[in-house]
Design a protein around this nucleic acid. Sequence first.
DNA 1: CTGAAAGCGCTAACAG
DNA 2: CTGTTAGCGCTTTCAG
Lengths: 341, 341
Amino acid sequence: MNPKNNPPTMQEIAKRLGVSLSTVSRALKNHPRISEKTKQEVLKIAKEIEYEPNQLALSLLNKRINAIGVVVPQIKYHLYASAISGIEKAANEAGFNIMICQTNELFEREVSIVKELIASRVAGLIVSVASESRDFAHLEQVLRKGIPLVLFNRDCEQLKVPKVVIDNYTAAFQATEKLIESGCENIAFLAGPPQVQISNKRLTGYKSALRKHHLQIDYDLIIHCEFSQENAANATLKLLRSRQQPDAILAFSDQMAIGAMLSVKEAGLKIPEDISIIGFNNEPVDLLLEPKLSSVDQPGFEMGQIATQLLLNQLEENYEELNPPKKVLATKLVVRESLRF
Amino acid sequence: MNPKNNPPTMQEIAKRLGVSLSTVSRALKNHPRISEKTKQEVLKIAKEIEYEPNQLALSLLNKRINAIGVVVPQIKYHLYASAISGIEKAANEAGFNIMICQTNELFEREVSIVKELIASRVAGLIVSVASESRDFAHLEQVLRKGIPLVLFNRDCEQLKVPKVVIDNYTAAFQATEKLIESGCENIAFLAGPPQVQISNKRLTGYKSALRKHHLQIDYDLIIHCEFSQENAANATLKLLRSRQQPDAILAFSDQMAIGAMLSVKEAGLKIPEDISIIGFNNEPVDLLLEPKLSSVDQPGFEMGQIATQLLLNQLEENYEELNPPKKVLATKLVVRESLRF
DNA sequence: CTGAAAGCGCTAACAG
DNA sequence: CTGTTAGCGCTTTCAG
């Protein structure tokens, strides 16, 4: 029992044994040029006093800590929880820890988190930008400082860094086409805030699909709102009261799709008979809804793993900063009961 | 553009200005005994070269980093996601960062995570133990080293440390009583693994309620299984085939309650007419189920905040290690459609 | 008001 | 095989 005591150091081991610090160091890291006997003695004392190497001191020498900073909007979103697991796995395998931070979609938080992670000298950053963020000077600074950075999921065109995203355009295109093929003609799109680039990509995909099938693009059926069930529910209420009632809704996320479902049901309409609905993310909850929600499945875990790989590549000694790679992963529309057949 | 360059140091500022290192240090931290002029010059250059203090060096001096280690089973559980937000808020307000780690309920992971956090010299640890864990030597070591530790939610009686938990006994007692009052007589309990202490507390509460109301305790109606929808669904299948079919199920978690619901429905039984169901955690999904799931609400965010406060108290200079406090928070049974009236 | 020097815990040359 | 030394970036005495 030595509470409040300073943690044991190599210095202490050295003193106890009457050897030099470097001998202890060598013994502890299994250096070849050390006698078996000294080694065992050192190891014994180390165990005795519960010596743990001070990562701080090591990190100061390496000029960086053995950890990757992960910045996401919210860990509770299924996509980010999966991605974090993927990152964690890949990072641990490479001997790195991860420091998870959530921005809660706030720009200010994002800026200060990134700043702090840099100050903590993380080895690199894996980021999915907050929905509020329009200005990316904080990330450009990361680049300027030569700190490895990878973006995932929420892309940001102006930043020239390695990134992993899904093919948002195609995903939305296919989902929209599916709705059209099942007979829907007035398809609404519940988009995210207008500054969210992946939302805009999906919007483009949606419009393309309409155009391809010679359907009019009705701007009353395109609504931008914050990511939340409640906002989406309100937006849907508005949609249902609009001149041209929709017969399908494509939502930016499952959370938003669920908001839509609630409003649709409340209005006494049937899903999918009156209105078909498709969301994004393939959250586990989709299976529990009635009707079961159709959704675009995104490979979150894989996205995390690849993002980490891209980061680790940059950490390699001989990394060449060519054109930063952009991995685009395919999605899969999972058709369930919320779609007419 | 100076990628791969070392980050700027105070040394550099000193050289550029032809002053000493200590002057720069003083200027940067607004020391009283420094001329306004020098200060401004230093500040100007600091901004110019985008100097960021090296937390690593500071931490080495302080012998610890400015962060609290948070160890939870899985961040995706609603309860832990909320608790983390509470911890994050309280920690940030006190100037601390948090390092979130998930054990995935694995004992081995927990041990190695705790070890690494110690090696990284976190200021303290906030932990919710993995379901697998029966041996707590790794946490006792934390105590022995005098590193502040707080447990939350998943209690562990043998560890004498500050903790925040809910009143598991009463919560289960009340839930069971509610079922009894609504006319149920064969109430099953879907428990967690037998080594999980809070599950056993709930079990005790459940039994007490039965006894109070002179109902027989039927051990066929008590099933231990791993926390997962699937396991719970299988366990429920077994229950439904048992000699005495239950007319109510109290589940350790909402995830498990959901598994139970699926099996019950699949068996062609009606909820709540044939079987009433109550879960724990009050997950947002409960509201989306049909019927809406009744659940014991736990104040996750608050639990996180209090846990952090208990940790910060230990960090105070003059902390007296008396009897470690144990905060027991009240829960609230949220009655919804899955209960008969 | 400013500078020099020691030291936080450890590693890595460089000498023996 | 082992010891000595310098240094990672910074704060903090102690001297000017």
